[in-house]
């Protein structure tokens, strides 16, 4: 809080703590980077020492080479997968939050429809997907639907929990001041639910990518497939393992980007007031 004294007295324990903090700060990014490099080297050595042919396990260098050479097709596919993922996530947010708000408005509505949401969630999407592609002609809509089924539940359940977590005294206060249902929702319940919703969003971001990829697999290589999952299937048929890895790398990268983006959003929205985003002051 206050300015540091002119001659700081650093006792032994504080000095040790300061050193630990410095090491911690460097380690935070250095450790994962180092381990990644080590893992790639180990991978490369294993392939070389055991003389594994490239149609079984390619060397990491070859994967990167393929990624660069095929970047045109692969990046176009990545864009398609990303589009489906983001659209599914958007629909999941609208559907999840919308349903949660309805649930919060009426206990009976919640009692009636919550079981459907649970059933939809616990049934593996791989097993529903074939049915969806039978009933839904439009392939894009089918893909969206699959990804949505996987992604919307964490948003629904977290937001429902958040909307029901309002402080009881605040709720009393709103009643005393004669707040309307809409005012209570807008000024009390939605802000209370925000951290819960953002937690759900982070999970849903990853899940919608999984949903999009799984749906593409199920939809198969027929039709106008061009997403990353389709590229993986296609490369698998041609025993182009390096290309499979390259596509996989892109999917992983998409997942990381989505996670980072949702984490950043969460941080920006909560940094001012929520415990989770506030650095502890000692």
């Amino acid at each position: 809080m206050s300015a540091a004294p002119a001659k700081p007295i650093l006792d032994e324990e504080e000095a040790r703590l300061a050193r630990a903090r410095r090491i911690d700060r460097i380690g935070k990014w250095a450790m994962p980077a180092l381990m990644l490099i080590v893992a790639v080297i180990v991978w490369d050595r294993i392939v070389v020492i055991n003389e594994i042919p490239k149609y079984i396990l390619p060397r990491p260098g070859l994967v990167v080479e393929t990624l660069i050479n095929d970047f045109g097709t692969l990046s176009a596919s990545a864009v398609v997968t990303m589009q489906i993922t983001l659209m599914a996530l958007a629909v999941a947010v609208i559907g999840g939050v919308g349903l949660a708000v309805f649930f919060a408005q009426s206990r009976f509505f919640e009692m009636a429809f919550y079981p459907f949401a649970v059933i939809l969630q616990v049934t593996p999407v791989v097993s529903i997907a074939p049915l969806i592609f039978i009933y839904v002609d439009n392939r894009l809509v089918g893909l969206l639907l699959c990804a949505w089924i996987v992604a919307f539940f964490p948003i629904l359940s977290n937001t429902t929990l958040g909307l029901n977590s309002t402080d009881h005294n605040l709720r009393d206060l709103y009643r005393i001041y004669g707040a309307t249902r809409w005012q209570r929702l807008r000024y009390l319940q939605l802000p209370t639910a925000l951290p819960y919703f953002l937690g759900g969003l982070r999970i849903a971001g990853g899940l919608s990518l999984i949903g999009a990829v799984v749906a593409e697999y199920v939809a198969g290589t027929g039709g106008i497939g061009s997403g990353l999952a389709f590229r993986i299937l296609e490369a698998g048929y041609r025993l182009n393992i390096a290309r499979m890895f390259a596509a996989l790398l892109l999917i992983a990268a998409l997942g990381v980007v989505i996670f980072a983006a949702t984490s950043l959003l969460s941080h920006l929205l909560l940094r001012k007031w929520h415990e989770s985003a506030i650095k502890r002051e000692i």
């Binding site: 005294n169 605040l170 206060l173 005393i176 000024y187 802000p191 925000l194 001012k272 007031w273 929520h274």
Partner: peptide, 12 residues
């Protein structure tokens, strides 16, 4: 009304 706790909205 003033309650036993301050009962403020943390986000505001």
């Amino acid at each position: 009304v003033v309650f036993q706790e301050p009962t403020l909205m943390p986000w505001a």
